[in-house]
Design a protein around this nucleic acid. Structure first.
Lengths: 224, 224
DNA sequence: CGATAAATTGACCGATTTTTGACTTTTAGA
DNA sequence: TCTAAAAGTCAAAAATCGGTCAATTTATCG
């Protein structure tokens, strides 16, 4: 399957040029001309994003942060000026690399390919973490307690992963929602309660122990 | 290094309250009472800005745009009313979030912390304070006297935190109510009296000493 | 398309916290 | 000493929060 590349830029000339070149290189391309479009196009789950941060109508860095909160793929900035401060700002906003204008199409596709390769490699390396008798396979998103698998659903896995990786810290429902869903939810949400219940059932079924503690009026935490 | 927060508001009462609470939370605060001051204080490079957009003497949104053009830190609006249009206007002007009045100090610092967290992953905010044999964990909102935990409820914790952080100062019930609840209460409220009683019981149970003194006709104070 | 699993929502219960109201005690000043 | 205001006490009502279940909506897969 071809890699998907999202191009965010308001200059039609440029986007068409990039788009056709990258398509010629075998990529699938999507174009967004403003922040609104860019955000809604994240649903295509691009493998890489080219983002022009020097667009007059919007703050590219701000947009970058929003994007970074929703996807993990590489974000490459297209920019005219480039100072040390720009670099720092951009990296803090979650960017991965800069391509300064003017650039050749060859250079562009080379950089794109390099980032996709690196991303692909890191995807291939299985990440396995173990703690408290659990074996967590982040790549396959599976959790074992000794020999027995826990069969968590996606959301359940996300919640467990988040709590486990921040053991002993207390998180209220709002924060868990933010961490797992990536955006704000309504304050008094039943969703978290229900997921916690399901998770607890599966945990105690497999281990016979309690791992998620409720701190009344504060939230939940993974005991360690 | 503590995070720097710039507070822009023309109500002295409120700015002092916010300032002292945020300082208690470990932040460094700066106060600007008008647009002129606010702009010149941008040279302190704040990590977050609290901006009251309902100030009579100036256009908060206009000011926000100016600020946004100069710094990239989160800008949180303090506002009484909040319509859908307000939100759009505010976000277009470069704001990041809204806190609608009335709000509790707890809510405020939670939102502030959330934005700072999202903005970067630096962990320089001090979360544990100790004094007079007490260990106050602001993150987990727990208080220990030596080894023994005090098991305060949330409101109780808020009151103790407020009094403790302003040791030896006298506050009447009105003032305590404002600080903890975030808005004005009726004058002769039993709520404070009752909470103080509960707190005193828990304090003497754990320590055998008296910490909260009543100053007759004036209020309460934390003895130090 | 339909079947199945997952995610979310709404309703309800019980525990805990918070607030209230009635009452008692203490205090300062006449 | 007496009194009115302020503070303290207690129990019970009200609000909040978390846990659970069933029902509904939403994704996923063949």
């Amino acid at each position: 399957m071809a890699h998907k590349i999202l191009i965010v830029d308001d200059e039609k000339m440029l986007t068409e040029l990039l788009s056709s070149h990258l398509q010629a290189c075998g990529y699938e391309t999507f174009v967004a001309e403003d922040a609104q479009q860019a955000i809604s196009m994240l649903t295509t789950y691009p493998d890489l994003i080219l983002l022009d941060i020097s667009m007059p109508e919007m703050d590219g860095l701000e947009l970058c942060k929003i994007i970074r909160n929703n996807v993990i793929c590489p974000i490459l900035f297209l920019t005219a000026r480039i100072t040390e401060q720009d670099k720092i700002n951009g990296l803090q906003a979650g960017g991965d690399d800069y391509i300064t204008k003017p650039f050749s199409l060859q250079e562009l596709s080379a950089r794109v390919a390099a980032h996709l390769r690196r991303d692909e490699r890191s995807k291939c390396t299985p990440k396995i973490v173990s703690s408290q008798g659990f074996i967590v396979n982040l790549a396959e998103r599976k959790i074992f307690y000794g020999e027995t698998e826990l069969n968590l659903s996606n959301r359940e896995f996300d919640i467990v992963e988040f709590l486990m990786c921040h053991a002993n810290q207390i998180f209220d429902k709002e924060r868990i929602y933010e961490a797992v869903w990536g955006f704000h939810g309504e304050g008094d949400s039943n969703v978290i309660k229900e997921h916690i219940r399901k998770i607890r059932n599966k945990l105690t079924d497999a281990t016979g122990k309690e791992y998620i503690e409720t701190v009344w009026g504060m939230g939940y935490r993974w005991k360690k």
